[in-house]
Nucleic acid binder design. Structure first.
Lengths: 153, 153
DNA sequence: CCTCTATTGAGAACGAGTCTCAGTTGCATG
DNA sequence: CATGCAACTGAGACTCGTTCTCAATAGAGG
């Protein structure tokens, strides 16, 4: 499992410790596979009688973000409070297709978008760091249910 | 001022009223020109002895968003809680270049990105509603100050 | 085994945004 | 102009995701 290895190295490089709690939280996130929220993660851990606190979870998520292994996704164009977290690879792109009907999140990869970002920053003398694209659209299932762009959200 | 007209029409179409408070808040936002936060707006209004409450501001911002005149911008790839608001035209794209050093926000328009979003949704049978792109990068001024992608944020 | 930090848990604190509710205002109608 | 009624407002309580605090605990090197 190379993501775990990467996390360990990140901790080591910072003089931080690879503790039981960090291990358990990381494993739970990997087991989840899908984007998750903190309450869901807490519940999952409690079910398995793995004791940990909210504070530790948030601290670990912070570290995972700093190591580039985790990203946040905010699910609405206007309300940035309902966040999900999701593991990601080493590249720092955060592109998601979000269904405005059911909230389903799909990862998207499109070279064209990375290229556009590079062009935009270069043209203005900026130094590119990362980008985040969210596309809000209605998935086929929700369209079948009769939802339309107007009546959802 | 056609944006104001658009707002009035939106209110009218919903059977809502164009009140003094909504007018004052709208005018303040227009006067601001740049992206703003709610505290800044409150302060601006208080300075001019325009009395209004946080609740009314948020309610008005909500209406402006629904009318398509306003958008939110979240300033960090990881923390979606520090938001700015900004007037926009009628088109529903939310593309911003955000300096990770000083927080400066620049609007970006790139046809290629809209095209990519259209392609991505069409390929998957989704019905496109809107998109939001944030590019995180270091502006020339911050680069001159010696900031680098590694030590900022 | 000791020492020095990093880490942890529990709960308090924070803060942007929302809700509540009693009092006010806009507006259509008689 | 008076009336009625739904929409609106302000003040402050509330929500809820996230962060902070601080005393107790646990790794890792010597």
């Amino acid at each position: 499992m190379e993501a775990l290895e990467q996390f360990k190295q990140f901790l080591d490089g910072r003089g931080l410790k690879y503790t039981r709690e960090r291990e358990k939280i990381f494993q739970a996130i990997v087991a989840f596979e899908k984007p998750f929220d903190v309450d869901g993660l807490l519940f999952y851990l409690k079910q398995r009688e793995i004791k940990t606190s909210k504070a530790t979870i948030y601290r670990t998520l912070q570290l995972l973000q700093e190591s580039g292994l985790l990203r946040t996704i905010s699910l609405s164009p206007t309300d940035h409070r309902t966040n999900l977290y999701s593991l990601c690879g080493k590249y720092r792109a955060y592109d998601h297709l979000i269904c405005t009907g059911c909230g389903k999140v799909t990862d998207v990869e499109k070279k064209q978008i990375c290229d556009s970002c590079r062009t935009i920053t270069q043209d203005r003398g900026y130094q590119l760091e990362s980008h985040s694209l969210r596309i809000f659209a209605l998935c086929p299932e929700c369209q079948k249910k009769g939802l339309t762009v107007e009546n959802c959200r």
